[in-house]
Simulated scan of single mutants.
Amino acid sequence: MKKTNLTISVLLLLYFFSLTGCGSNTRVDGKPEWKAEHVVFIGLDGWGSYSVEKADMPNVKQLMKEGCYTLQKRTVLPSSSAVNWASMFMGAGPELHGYTTWGSQTPDLPSRELNRNGMFPNIFNMLKETAPEAEIGAIYEWDGIKYLVDTLSLNYYRHVPNDNKLNTALTGAAVKYIKEKKPTLAAFIYDSPDDTGHGDGHDTPGYYAKLKELDDQIGEIIHAMKEAGMYDNSIIIVTSDHGGIEKGHGGISMMEMETPFIIAGKGIQQGGGFQESMMQFDVAPTIAGIFHLDQPQVWVGRSMKQVFY
């Protein structure tokens, strides 16, 4: 009799643990534990995949070695800025989110769906709705980014003008933000590869010198994450909106349309290059997968599930 009672007690205790999430990979709210507590998204505007092999970017290449990457992520069309940053953040193409030109500040076409902030559903709003306590921020050099990141869902956002020198202003602001706030999701977006591409030209010595400078800035951000004690529980993404050819972009050449996507950190396979097809609108679903966010029906992107353990 005592043995039977003990068995029942153990079963009841296990059942209680299953409901509360104790001893399992679930949060207090019953949802799965995030794959990482922090995601740091680093964007390099105008960084084409064609340049990666030749570029002197040791910090970026260390992330490639430690994680997964593709150099064949394709832009949506046109291969220019606002339409592609919007697609990355909004999980869909211009036909649905409505931002169709390099400088769109509002949808040129009516967005197929709007969230409570009056924007197309996006990764920033989805995380804030699911985890109101999450610290979410964006710091950027191109002022056009502020129209695409759903600022009503951000705790912090800041435009740091690009002096097209060493980009230390953005990096300094990013380092300060990391150390003070330890953000759940932060987007740091540099504009100078694009400026250099328009000025010196793509695939030129000046362009590669700028990539080297930016790699140094990325190294400072990584160092700040380590000093803040968040690096080991973080995922880092480094990517781009488009590449370029000669001194322009917006066309259909592969130099303009193929962009890098690099992901490394907690729970990421040390798998090197992956061969699966990836588009700009697959970025938001991949980030959503880290936080176990339910993907809106209006999104067309897919999570790159193969990069996770």
Results as ranks from 00 to 15, higher is better:
Gly30Leu: 09
Gly30Val: 09
Glu33Asp: 10
Trp34Met: 09
Trp34Gln: 06
Ala36Leu: 04
Ala36Asp: 02
His38Trp: 07
Asp45Ala: 07
Gly46Ser: 05
Trp47Gln: 02
Gly48Arg: 00
Gly48Ala: 01
Gly48Asn: 02
Ser49Met: 00
Ser49Pro: 03
Ser49Arg: 00
Tyr50Asp: 01
Tyr50Gly: 00
Val52His: 00
Glu53Arg: 04
Lys54Phe: 10
Lys54Thr: 12
Asp56Tyr: 04
Asp56Ser: 09
Asp56Ile: 02
Pro58Lys: 05
Pro58Phe: 03
Pro58Gln: 10
Lys61Gln: 08
Gln62Met: 09
Leu63Gln: 11
Leu63Phe: 02
Leu63Pro: 00
Met64Gln: 12
Met64Phe: 01
Cys68Pro: 03
Cys68Phe: 01
Cys68His: 01
Tyr69His: 06
Tyr69Ser: 04
Tyr69Thr: 04
Thr70Leu: 03
Thr70Asp: 03
Leu71Glu: 04
Leu71Met: 14
Gln72Leu: 06
Gln72Tyr: 09
Lys73Leu: 06
Thr75Gln: 03
Val76Tyr: 08
Pro78Ser: 10
Ala82Leu: 04
Ala82Phe: 13
Val83Asn: 08
Val83Phe: 08
Asn84Val: 05
Asn84Tyr: 06
Trp85Arg: 07
Met90Gly: 11
Gly91Lys: 08
Gly93Asn: 15
Gly93Glu: 09
Glu95Ala: 14
Leu96Tyr: 11
Leu96Glu: 09
His97Thr: 11
His97Pro: 12
Gly98Thr: 07
Gly98Val: 05
Gly98Asn: 05
Tyr99Val: 06
Tyr99Arg: 11
Tyr99Trp: 10
Thr101Val: 13
Thr101Gly: 15
Thr101Gln: 15
Ser104Ile: 06
Gln105Thr: 14
Gln105Glu: 15
Thr106Trp: 12
Asp108Ala: 12
Leu109Ala: 12
Leu109Gly: 00
Pro110Gly: 00
Ser111Gly: 08
Glu113His: 01
Glu113Asp: 07
Leu114Gly: 03
Asn115Gly: 01
Met119Arg: 06
Met119Asp: 09
Met119His: 00
Pro121Thr: 05
Pro121Cys: 04
Pro121Asn: 06
Asn122Val: 08
Ile123Pro: 06
Ile123Leu: 15
Phe124Arg: 04
Asn125Leu: 06
Met126Ile: 12
Ala134Tyr: 11
Ala134Asn: 06
Glu135Val: 13
Gly137Phe: 01
Ile139Thr: 09
Ile139His: 03
Tyr140Cys: 02
Tyr140Ala: 07
Asp143Val: 13
Gly144Asp: 13
Ile145Gln: 12
Lys146Pro: 02
Lys146Ser: 11
Leu148Ala: 02
Val149Gly: 10
Val149His: 04
Thr151Asn: 02
Leu152Gln: 15
Leu154Phe: 04
Asn155Phe: 01
Asn155Cys: 09
Tyr156Met: 11
Tyr156Leu: 12
Tyr156Lys: 10
Tyr156Gln: 09
Tyr157Ser: 14
Arg158Cys: 13
Arg158Tyr: 11
Arg158Pro: 00
His159Ala: 07
His159Val: 09
Pro161Phe: 11
Pro161Trp: 13
Asn162Cys: 15
Asn162Asp: 15
Asp163Gln: 12
Asp163Arg: 09
Asn164Pro: 06
Lys165Ser: 14
Lys165Asn: 15
Leu166Asn: 13
Ala169Ser: 13
